[in-house]
């Protein structure tokens, strides 16, 4: 107990890697002991080799790029439209009353349930996948930004009015910067759903992508390749998450 408290205080950043290391160790031990059929649980080494093969064949990078592109396009569209709509809803009670029930309703419709409809409308290309990510994140992004706008201190808005400010400039120069940290954090959180959805979309229908590779691997019982896919998806997600945190730290020094 004592030991942990002191060492966490001295180097808390060590704990994260430590947790991962422990899981790797347990995983290796189980594989080595041979209790579980390698078909179900490939060893870390086997997974590493499978990753190497995929990298060499150029598949892994192409798959990752395909998935990242879809996530990026769908999420950029969602984030870019959610910002003005969320600000409009948060600052104008009429717009809020008009749209909040609608958005609140759609938000509870599971995005994957839209896949059949999107395929009927747009076929099997990129567009339905990008739109799925849009549908799955837009309503959450908008409502979270709306909530942030409702908590902008009255004094800041009223000060701007007494300084000669009016409507739109107050939204762009007071409201938008004030909610920037919360908006970035909303994006960071909803980015996780975007990753869920791109994989779901690719499992259903795609030529390439990390999700597609997983479903192919399943067909050939290549659990090692499934593990590669899962780990790579996790790592990319983690990197994006860290990226958002870095942006937040650098651009919103005032908020920390």
């Amino acid at each position: 107990m004592r030991f942990f408290e002191r060492s966490t205080l001295r180097s808390p950043w060590l704990l994260g890697p430590l947790g991962i290391l422990v899981v790797l160790l347990v995983w290796s031990l189980i594989s080595l002991s041979g209790v579980v059929d390698p078909l179900f649980l490939p060893s870390p080494l086997a997974v590493w080799r499978a990753a190497g093969e995929q990298v060499q064949a150029g598949i892994l990078v192409a798959d990752a790029i395909a998935s990242i592109r879809r996530v990026f396009l769908g999420f950029a569209l969602s984030a870019a439209l959610a910002l003005p709509l969320g600000i409009a809803m948060g600052s104008n009670p009429l717009i809020c009353r008009l749209l909040e029930p609608l958005l609140g309703l759609i938000r509870y419709m599971p995005a994957p349930a839209f896949i059949p409809l999107l395929i009927i409308y747009f076929g099997l290309g990129e567009l339905p996948k990008v739109l799925l990510i849009f549908i799955g994140t837009f309503f959450f992004n908008t409502l979270m930004i709306m909530d942030a706008v409702k908590f902008v201190p009255q004094e800041l808005l009223e000060t701007a009015l007494t300084l000669g400010g009016r409507g739109l400039p107050i939204l762009t120069r007071v409201v938008a910067p004030y909610i920037a940290p919360q908006a970035i954090d909303a994006y960071r959180i909803n980015m996780a759903s975007a990753w869920n959805l791109v994989i779901v979309a690719e499992l259903v229908a795609a030529n390439e992508g990390l999700g597609k590779r997983i479903s192919l691997a399943q067909r050939f019982l290549r659990t090692d390749e499934i593990f590669v896919g899962l780990i790579v998806i996790g790592l990319i997600g983690l990197l994006i998450d860290l990226g958002f945190r870095a942006v937040l730290r650098r651009s919103c020094r005032w908020a920390s």
Partner: peptide, 18 residues
Amino acid sequence: GPGSDRGMVFQKYSLYPW
């Protein structure tokens, strides 16, 4: 309505923190 001919200083929390 408000205008810049009447300036206002509030008790607190009215500076733009960013």
